[in-house]
């Protein structure tokens, strides 16, 4: 069971939280302008990397706020959590998008 640091409440067990989905997928400003492929990419397709993954969680049994987590899909290690609207860089030597 993961230990997740909620940016508002501090470290809490995974059962306090609800997993959302991949983070930083902004809803398109003007969906009508998108072709079918671009819209399908937004609605259906996610990156599912092997390695570091930015993902969105909600502290369901706590402050009920959404935030972002950088987790390794290989080791489950969590290296940072941060609030929506932020996007801190990964520590030196770690690859975004997860290829190792």
């Amino acid at each position: 069971m993961l230990l997740i640091r909620c940016p508002h409440c501090g470290p809490r067990p995974e059962t306090d939280f609800r997993y959302g989905h991949e983070a930083h997928i902004a809803r398109p400003e003007a969906p009508d302008q998108l072709d079918d492929a671009a819209w399908a990419d937004f609605v259906f397709l996610r990156s599912n990397p092997r390695g570091w993954h930015r993902e969105r969680w909600m502290h369901a049994a706590g402050c009920r706020r959404w935030f972002n987590v950088v987790r390794s899909t290989v080791t489950h290690e969590i290296i940072m959590t941060y609030r929506p609207g932020e996007r801190p860089a990964l520590p030196d030597g770690l690859d975004e998008g997860g290829k190792r």
């Binding site: 609800r18 959302g20 902004a26 969105r56 909600m58 369901a60 009920r64 959404w66 929506p84």
Partner: peptide
Amino acid sequence: DWLEEYLQTEWP
């Protein structure tokens, strides 16, 4: 939850 997610993340 659905309303909250949009209010907190898409349209804060």
